Amino acid sequence: MIPRIKDLAPLPDFFLQVVFDDGKTVLYDVKEDMEQIESYRDLCSIAGLFDQVQLDPSRTCVFWNDRIDLPSDTIYEYGKVQ
């Protein structure tokens, strides 16, 4: 089952705080993705873009634009539990 996101908040230093439907809350460090995926570097170089993170209608993906997205299962698996 793909985890569905209940709440999402961008935090300083390129962290996302994500709450899932099952109650699990994680902090996900997007900096690691920025180091490995070229399109993610826009999150650092375009002022204010990171804070414009959105949740897709299915609640299984977060995105910033048509080139930068992050599936909920990745966040669920690799985020640090709070």
Rank of each mutant, 00 (worst) to 15 (best):
F14W: 06
Y76R: 13
R41M: 04
D66Q: 09
F15E: 13
I46T: 07
F14L: 04
D22H: 00
P3A: 00
A47D: 06
L11K: 05
L43G: 00
Y40I: 02
M34K: 02
A9C: 15
V53H: 06
C61A: 06
P3H: 02
L11C: 12
V30S: 05
L27G: 03
D56S: 12
G79R: 07
G79C: 06
L27P: 00
D73A: 04
E77R: 14
I2W: 04
E38Y: 10
E38R: 10
S45C: 05
A47I: 08
V26G: 05
M34G: 05
I37A: 10
D7F: 09
L43Y: 00
P3D: 01
R59Q: 14
D13M: 03
Q17R: 07
T74Q: 11
R4P: 04
L55H: 04
I5N: 08
D21E: 15
V62Q: 03
F50A: 07
F14G: 01
V53M: 13
D56F: 07
D33M: 03
G79S: 04
P57N: 03
V19M: 08
I68W: 14
P57E: 01
E35A: 06
E38H: 14
D29V: 09
D51T: 15
W64K: 04
S58P: 03
G23E: 15
Q82P: 06
D42N: 04
S39I: 10
L11S: 09
Q52A: 14
R59S: 11
Y76C: 02
D29P: 05
Y78E: 10
P71E: 12
I46P: 01
S39D: 15
D69T: 05
C61N: 11
S58W: 06
S39V: 13
V26M: 01
S39E: 11
P12E: 11
V30D: 02
G48C: 08
F15I: 02
K6P: 03
G48Y: 09
L8T: 06
L8Y: 07
T74N: 01
D42M: 15
L49Y: 07
R67T: 15
Y28P: 00
K80T: 11
P57F: 07
E32I: 08
T74E: 12
W64T: 00
D22L: 05
R4T: 15
P57G: 00
D33I: 03
V19I: 06
L70E: 04
Y76V: 00
L70G: 02
M34L: 13
D22C: 01
Y76F: 05
Y28A: 09
R67P: 14
P71C: 08
D13W: 03
F14P: 09
L70D: 13
C44F: 04
V53T: 05
D7C: 09
T60L: 02
K6E: 03
D56Y: 11
D22E: 02
L70V: 04
D13P: 09
I37S: 01
E32W: 12
G48V: 14
I5L: 07
T60S: 10
W64F: 01
F63E: 04
N65M: 12
I37R: 13
K80C: 15
Y76D: 00
V53P: 02
K31D: 05
E77Y: 06
T25N: 08
Q82I: 14
M1N: 11
L49V: 07
K31G: 06
L70M: 08
P71I: 12
